[in-house]
Design a protein around this nucleic acid. Structure first.
Lengths: 117, 117
DNA sequence: CACTTGACTTGGAGTTACTCGAACTTGGTA
DNA sequence: TACCAAGTTCGAGTAACTCCAAGTCAAGTG
């Protein structure tokens, strides 16, 4: 499939996919005779994973490391596992932040409600 | 209090506080005779709110708008309320993203676990 | 067959929200 | 007096896109 389809399926924009290619976290996929990128479903799965990791705040540098390990084969799985576990604990932290901010907002909104009436 | 204390109490860094001043979301606080900024507890409460809003992804532009309304007095409360409500719904969205990514990670980690043994 | 439309290409500039460094002043201590 | 920590401003650097210009190419229309 072409880049636009890969984009809509993964959630990333076409610009972001090309950007990810230049920074090396997306492989240089095959090209069609006219020079257009050709994505496989496996490529799209990878893009989708990147989409979620990025969307939840994993820095590009970490993703670069992760992608490099991925390309080196199965013996890097323990280290990849470590990266994902670390990310999971950062997700938990973020959820706590959201909960805390949500509580603060509720409190603020409660105060506003009094002014309104 | 001085900027370093305001920073440690609010959670923001001294650099960020000064930056927020230049972009107009923190008032130009009083200065001591030597030119150092002097923060009141009210200032710190404002900084703390900004800290949480920012930490949970509110863009500076929105905070600029919010700060402007705040300075215009109580009659802007309905609009401020709207901003906070919008932010709350974005928080909910973010929490969903985190949950979804968390599920994906758990699945990946489960697959890795099989390789390990 | 010329033309338009739309999707693709690269390269480079612009944007957001900091973050850091240089160069300076000031206030308190040995 | 010498020094150190903490403050100041201003300007440059960074991360992760995001957009724009300028071009190519394939397909469809008059």
């Amino acid at each position: 499939m072409l880049i636009s389809e890969a984009a809509s399926k993964s959630g990333l924009s076409t610009e972001t996919i090309r950007y990810y290619e230049t920074v090396g976290i997306v492989p240089r996929v095959e090209r069609l005779p006219n020079g257009n990128r050709h994505f496989t479903t496996e490529n799209v799965e990878w893009l989708t994973l990147l989409y979620w990791l990025r969307k939840t705040g994993m820095p590009i540098k970490v993703m670069q490391h992760f992608a490099k390990l991925y390309n080196q084969g199965d013996h890097t799985i323990p280290e990849r596992k470590k990266i994902l576990l670390e990310h999971q604990s950062r997700l938990e932290e973020r959820r706590n932040n959201i909960d805390q901010c949500s509580a603060i907002l509720s409190h603020k909104l409660e105060i506003y409600r009094r002014f309104e009436s």
